[in-house]
């Protein structure tokens, strides 16, 4: 079975701040700020291609059981669909 992967779309960058992450959309010349805890989810997703691994990490960080955690991640990804590319 193919593993679901996730990666940042081309032209998307981010900078880690003390209180969150600043997201840059280089193609649209736009940026936005995401504060914690969503910023922590962003960082895990942006740095790990394997979605299942990211789900496990986030579940441990937020101390959420699997289904609740996946719902939380999905709601974040729904807001960030312009930034991430999904496969599988």
């Amino acid at each position: 079975m193919q593993t679901a992967t996730i990666q940042l779309k081309q032209g998307i960058g981010y900078a880690i701040e003390e209180n969150g992450v600043t997201i840059l959309n280089n193609r649209l010349h736009k940026s936005e700020f995401i504060s914690y805890p969503d910023a922590a989810i962003w960082l895990v997703l942006a740095r790990n291609n394997d979605l299942k691994v990211s789900q496990k990490m986030i579940s441990a960080i937020l101390n959420l059981e699997k289904n609740k955690c996946n719902n939380y991640i999905n709601s974040c990804l729904n807001n960030w669909k312009n930034y991430f590319l999904f496969n599988g």
Binding site: A15, E17, N19, G20, T22, N25, N26, H29, S31, F33
Partner: peptide, 16 residues
């Protein structure tokens, strides 16, 4: 063209 980058400073603590 520089506007999107102005949301950040040179340090991570600039935002706070």
């Amino acid at each position: 063209q520089l506007e999107p980058y102005k949301l950040s400073g040179i340090f991570p603590y600039c935002k706070t």
